[in-house]
Design a protein around this nucleic acid. Sequence first.
DNA 1: GTAATTGCAAAAGATTTGCCCCATT
DNA 2: AATGGGGCAAATCTTTTGCAATTAC
Lengths: 132, 132
Amino acid sequence: MKKSRNTRQRAVILDVLKNTESSHPTAETIYREARKVLPNISLGTVYRNLNFLRGQGLVREIRSNNEASSRFEGERPPHAHFHCTCCQTVHDIPLPDCVRNLQWEGDTPICSVNSLELHIVGACSQCVAVQS
Amino acid sequence: MKKSRNTRQRAVILDVLKNTESSHPTAETIYREARKVLPNISLGTVYRNLNFLRGQGLVREIRSNNEASSRFEGERPPHAHFHCTCCQTVHDIPLPDCVRNLQWEGDTPICSVNSLELHIVGACSQCVAVQS
DNA sequence: GTAATTGCAAAAGATTTGCCCCATT
DNA sequence: AATGGGGCAAATCTTTTGCAATTAC
């Protein structure tokens, strides 16, 4: 495996991801947060590190269908994502057992499964409460 | 609802989507296909129509985590997607009943569900066969 | 005839990359 | 000291948009 260094920038980015567990920040948001600690960090560095960390399996990318930019999250136990179309928030939700245990033996092209993503799109209770 | 016209461009785009059911083309691919029929169609028109048709519920956008561009599909009965990391193909696969019937009554922020996406990532049988 | 839609090209956004310098090892 | 990684800015890529001309109705 390739040699890598523990730079202050990388540590800060991981830290931002750890401390915003439920907000699934974009690169831009991570950049803004990181700048509070390292005012000179550049957006390019944020992207380079996110890509590197994703390669290491320490960061996951999340894309939803109507958003231009990717969101990122630190690696955590398997879970699903709930996207509220009203407040644009992405929430972590438990991954149902039946999904975790899915078998694909029927008439599918699936040979081996690496990962699985379940995205629920709808309205969150908070938004519905505010509306009424 | 807003007035809309049946342009040749729109019909061709829908046709391309219908005739490439299992390939989930990108806008660029749709553009190239459409040019075979309408050599002057522009990429902007393809995007504009895809957005319009998505608004009408006739087209769906699919984004996967490591691809820069969106893929599109014509509206079809609910199904899940299988992404082969080897050949980059996206296959339609049946949506398991247990997923279709998921209930969210526990400790989640979910109030109402509009739609649901299940993405499986792995290797398809064809790729595995070729490798060995 | 009117207004939606097109083609074209420029703009906008997100992400990547080249280059030279700095900092970790 | 060697070299991985950073900062900056330019480049790239995808998608959107303004505008004048066209076309469906």
